[in-house]
Nucleic acid binder design. Structure first.
Lengths: 244, 244
DNA sequence: GTCTATACGTTGATAGAC
DNA sequence: GTCTATCAACGTATAGAC
């Protein structure tokens, strides 16, 4: 067990290392892993470059051999993290097969993204919750990746609605709600759940379909009170996929 | 417009001050509002006591007349914020009436909590996302309030399931998903939505009912398509994960 | 590439005048 | 209750030896 992962149990250490295994020289990689772990625990501003260097087994100055600044280190983490997440989403859609309809594709994406957030919850926490600490330029660059991820879900909901296979009166709003549900896993997992990432993924995939599927509707199964669903208003569907 | 709210547009300033209008002496209240605004923008560790004092129109030392420490200031914000959120949830359940069934109550709570998160998104962001910066004792105290909030939703889902009015195979998991959806509003609102807090609340209340209501079922029109891009590794955790 | 040493601004917090 | 002045610790980052 390296210094960078001291204090973590073996399974955890292996996973964190594997998530970043393609990254550069050993010392740089150790710094990156140490930084992910520290940022996840205390946030960007709550973590000092000394913390990171210590965890990686280097002196404070060692950081600057491999990264131009603390922000640069953070930026690389967020960029790679988002690229991996986007790839995960696109692979999930592909895995549903060329003939898959919106329902299968929605389930596939939500399940895969949820599983990802749970399995890589440490990385995901850094990547999801500290973005305003990036420089404006880097923030915008990462934002573009986030819009592409949102567009995957938005596109599936929109197509399902157009085809009449979904009942989604507000595609923009439902996209946001769905992404929120998935994103937020990184904030709490695994403290409130004993489910595996895969089990959680299945549950969330199921919930996503319920949110999009045709259902009882206004005055349906819940007749006793004003629980109608379609409020009559709605949105124009289109537009850009929401940023998330 | 006071110094504490300078630079905010009117709606934001109103939502921000509304939540804290009952708080003590004017200077203390100005400090609190200034702190909420600063913490929301840059996080607890990213905000200095000088930032806060400046925004409140006081010298750096002025903070310590009213609060024992930076952590104390943050603690009071999170405590009051959580108390208000819990009250909001309980009032929503009451407002559904004594004869309301699980469906009406679920809709009422989710709608009210979503509207609250959107209207008070600045306060909510501080209160939801920086909790690990609290001292262990204060973290536990706030955690107890969070568990009570979660219990409201959990209780409604459980009762609906027992009565057969809901189809919720995993009450714990669905509670988490529902709370995630609502909580996460504070992270992105209003940047990705032009909907009012009330409109967003209606949408989310509707989505919550869809998640809980009886539906086509696993063998129905939307067959299960197991997917996912599981790799098999895990990720570490070391910081205290947020309670939910 | 890594170290030791250090520059030098910022931080949370306190002392004491008014 | 608010200020000015101040402190010791810590922050990011650099210089230069090896």
């Amino acid at each position: 067990m390296s210094k960078a992962t001291a204090g973590l149990d073996e399974t955890q250490a292996r996973g964190l290392t594997e998530a970043w295994e393609d990254f550069g020289p050993p010392s740089a990689r150790r710094l990156l892993i140490a930084a992910v772990d520290a940022f996840a625990a205390r946030g960007y501003h709550g973590t000092s470059t000394r913390d990171i260097a210590d965890r990686a087994g280097l002196s404070p100055a060692g950081v600057y051999v491999h990264f131009a600044s603390k922000e640069d280190l953070f930026y690389r983490i967020t960029l790679i993290g988002h690229q991996q997440t986007l790839r995960n989403a696109l692979l999930a859609v592909d895995s549903a097969g060329p003939d898959a309809g919106p329902a299968e594709r929605l389930r596939a994406v939500v399940e895969a993204q949820t599983t990802w957030q749970a399995r890589h919850h440490t990385t995901a926490r850094v990547v999801e919750y500290d973005l305003p600490s990036l420089s404006p330029e880097h923030y915008e660059e990462v934002g573009a990746l986030r819009r592409r991820i949102a567009a995957v879900v938005h596109g599936i909901l929109g197509e399902g609605a157009r085809r009449g296979e979904f009942d989604v009166p507000d595609v923009d709003g439902t996209t946001l709600a769905l992404l929120s549900m998935v994103t937020d896993v990184a904030r709490w997992y695994p403290s409130n759940s004993r489910q595996s990432p895969e089990e959680l993924g299945k549950l969330y995939g199921d919930l996503a379909l319920r949110m999009a599927a045709p259902h009882g509707g206004a005055g349906g199964a819940f007749g006793t009170a004003g629980t109608g669903t379609g409020e009559g208003d709605d949105d124009s569907t289109d537009g850009g996929a929401a940023e998330h």
